[in-house]
Structure formats: structure tokens, C-alpha cells
């Protein structure tokens, strides 16, 4: 377990920063803006899973104080396509925690192109897409005070467009492993969906069981429940792509990119996660190995969860999760193994 992994007051966070450690803080931007300069990075969200239940919190911040054995090598900022340097900047043995604001140039590039970055899977990268207080959500807003942000504790600056990474090294014999909890499985009766455009975030037409259709129209006509993501199987690793909360017209903006050479399927909740009382995602975690994690806010919002696997593991509720590449409707966490 990290030394600290919980919601704390900003006064306590201030003391921690002044004590000289390296931290991640996650919270409302007003709370993060109160923190002094120091060795930390921050990302915005007001939503958390605490003791297996979803909570909204705007005054406290969630702290991750990384295990003492992990040495912070550097903090890197990335704008737009420079985020492709994230693997080059990561130490040979260690892990990278990456935060990217929703809708930022960095997150869009990462979503579309990370799976092609050379050596991406040789160095563990976990993190999430930062969000905001949902009643303020307006993707078209030009007011930067109400957009998802990252914070660079070294300078005290926040930004709506920069990704920020903490690169940690680990001593020989210790390994960081990125894991996921995916509460969804492909429906047995799902058609196979293939997309035309590669790396697409905006989807119009697709091949459904080989027949070209307008996908938004198909989803509506066939009454597909679009609270459930579509899913592709990457040699055993199931990757979700979240569908938008509303579908209108003949185009839809996906939360993560889809790729033309993958087969996607509609999903349902996996049998082992159907009983929300028994399937708390926290039960999957080994506290001795756990470093940090996050879970998708969409599962909480779409399924009104207040417990169980769909609520996710303890930690921030996020607007996209990073398990090397960006995924959706998933819990992602990092463990340390020997």
C-alpha cells in the first residue's frame, strides 16, 4: 500500500508537501489551487470511491503518497503530440503516473495514437483523464476556470491542455504491474462491429456483421443500451470504449478511439459482478501490493452505483482511465511485485 491513500484536508496536504515527500493530489481545482509549491502533481475530479461507495467531495483532496522504495525521477509536462515522449522519459524499471485533462490536445493524441508509440508496453503507465464538477460541465466553454485541469506542483501552475507525468524508478527485482478490473463482457448475441476510419473518435458508419450501417442509427433502432461500452479483445486483455451518454443524429463522439483492425462487440455486466453487494471491486485488490488506482465515473453515473464492482476500487472516479492506452468503464490499478 502507499503510505497514504485517502481524502485529507488541504491543511494536512499543505503540511505533507512541506515535509518534502512526493505526492499526487486529486480534487476540485479550488482545493488543489490552495496547495503550496512542492514535489507533487494534481488532477481535477470531485468524485471518489471511498470504502466501496461513491462520494462527491469539493473541499478535501485525495492524496497518493507513493511507496518509499519508488524514487521520483522526474515530473514531465506534455502538450499535444509531445505526450508521445512519455515512454522515452520513463525509467527502464519503474512506473509512470500520467494525468491528462479531458478534451486536451494531449489526451486526444494519446487516445488515438498511444497504441502505436514505440515500446509503450515495456514500461508500465497508469493514470487517468481528469474531470471536473459535473454541473459545470460544458465542453464548449472557453472559460478555463470550469474545465478539467492538471496541476504542476513544482510551479504551482494549472493547465487545461497539458498532460503531466510522474516518472518513478524501482530498484532491481521490483516490478510495477498495471492491472484492470473490467465489469463488462461481450454479449454472446452481439454482432461484430468493425470501423472504417483508423484511430477514430468520431464515428459515423461501421460494419455490423459485415453490413455497412450508420452506427448511431443502428444503436437507436436496435435499442442497444449505450450505458454499456463496446469491447475489443486484445489477446485476452478486454478493452472498453465508452459510448456517449446521448446519441443524436448520424455521428457520435466516442470517449476513446476505435481502431479499424479490431473487432468490437456490445457488452453486458459480467456474471461475477452482477450482485453488487458481493462484488465490491476492492476485494480484488491485494493491499500489500497496491500502489494506486482509479475507476470510471461513467459506471457510477450510468448505473447509479453506490457500491459493488461498478462503483470501482477506492480512489478517484475518473473521466477515462489509462492502462498504457486510454480505456473506459474500467478500474485501473498499479501493483508492485517482487
Amino acid at each position: 500500500m502507499p503510505n497514504l491513500y485517502k481524502l485529507i484536508d488541504t491543511s494536512e496536504a499543505t503540511e505533507l508537501i512541506r515535509s518534502g515527500g512526493s505526492f499526487s493530489f486529486i480534487g476540485d481545482e479550488r482545493a488543489l489551487a490552495k496547495l503550496p509549491k512542492g514535489n507533487w502533481v494534481g488532477g481535477t475530479t470531485c468524485y471518489f470511491t471511498i470504502d466501496g461507495k461513491s462520494v462527491e467531495e469539493r473541499d478535501k483532496v485525495f492524496v497518493i503518497d507513493y511507496p518509499a522504495v519508488a524514487k521520483l525521477e522526474k515530473i514531465s509536462l506534455y502538450k499535444g503530440e509531445t505526450v508521445s515522449n512519455v515512454t522515452n522519459d520513463a525509467p527502464e524499471n519503474g512506473f509512470t503516473i500520467l494525468f491528462m485533462p479531458a478534451g486536451s490536445g494531449a489526451s486526444l493524441h494519446y487516445s488515438q495514437f498511444a497504441p502505436t508509440y514505440p515500446g509503450l508496453f515495456l514500461k508500465p503507465i497508469a493514470g487517468w483523464i481528469t474531470g471536473m464538477y459535473l454541473p459545470d460541465w460544458n465542453p464548449a466553454s472557453t472559460h478555463k476556470d470550469k474545465l478539467p485541469k492538471t496541476f504542476n506542483g513544482l510551479t504551482g501552475e494549472s493547465d487545461t491542455d497539458s498532460a503531466i507525468a510522474m516518472h518513478f524508478s524501482l530498484p532491481q527485482g521490483k516490478f510495477a504491474i498495471v492491472k484492470t478490473i473490467n465489469p463488462f463482457v461481450a454479449r454472446k448475441d452481439s454482432p461484430v462491429i468493425r470501423f472504417e476510419g483508423n484511430n477514430s473518435l468520431i464515428v459515423r458508419d461501421a460494419f455490423v456483421d459485415g453490413k455497412k450501417v450508420n452506427l448511431p442509427k443502428y444503436i437507436l433502432e436496435n435499442k442497444v443500451d449505450f450505458r454499456f461500452p463496446i469491447q475489443a479483445n486484445y489477446s485476452g486483455t478486454l478493452i472498453n470504449v465508452s459510448l456517449p451518454p446521448e446519441i443524436q443524429g448520424e455521428e457520435m463522439l466516442l470517449h476513446q478511439a476505435v481502431f479499424s483492425d479490431m473487432d468490437y462487440r456490445f457488452t453486458e455486466v459480467a456474471p461475477e459482478f452482477k450482485d453488487s453487494q458481493k462484488s465490491c471491486a476492492n476485494n480484488v485488490i491485494d493491499p500489500k501490493k497496491f500502489i494506486a488506482g482509479c475507476s470510471c465515473i461513467l459506471n457510477h453515473l450510468s448505473f447509479n452505483t453506490n457500491g459493488g464492482a461498478l462503483c470501482g476500487i477506492d480512489g478517484p472516479l475518473t473521466f477515462g482511465e489509462i492502462c498504457y492506452q486510454i480505456v473506459g468503464n474500467t478500474s485501473v490499478y498499479l501493483e508492485m511485485e517482487e
Binding site: F121, V178, C323
Partner: peptide, 9 residues
């Protein structure tokens, strides 16, 4: 997880 992603890529 990473093995599936790496091999599939």
C-alpha cells in the same frame, strides 16, 4: 494485461 496489449499490437 500488458502482454495481451503488446502481443495484439
Amino acid at each position: 494485461v500488458a502482454a495481451g496489449l503488446c502481443v495484439a499490437r
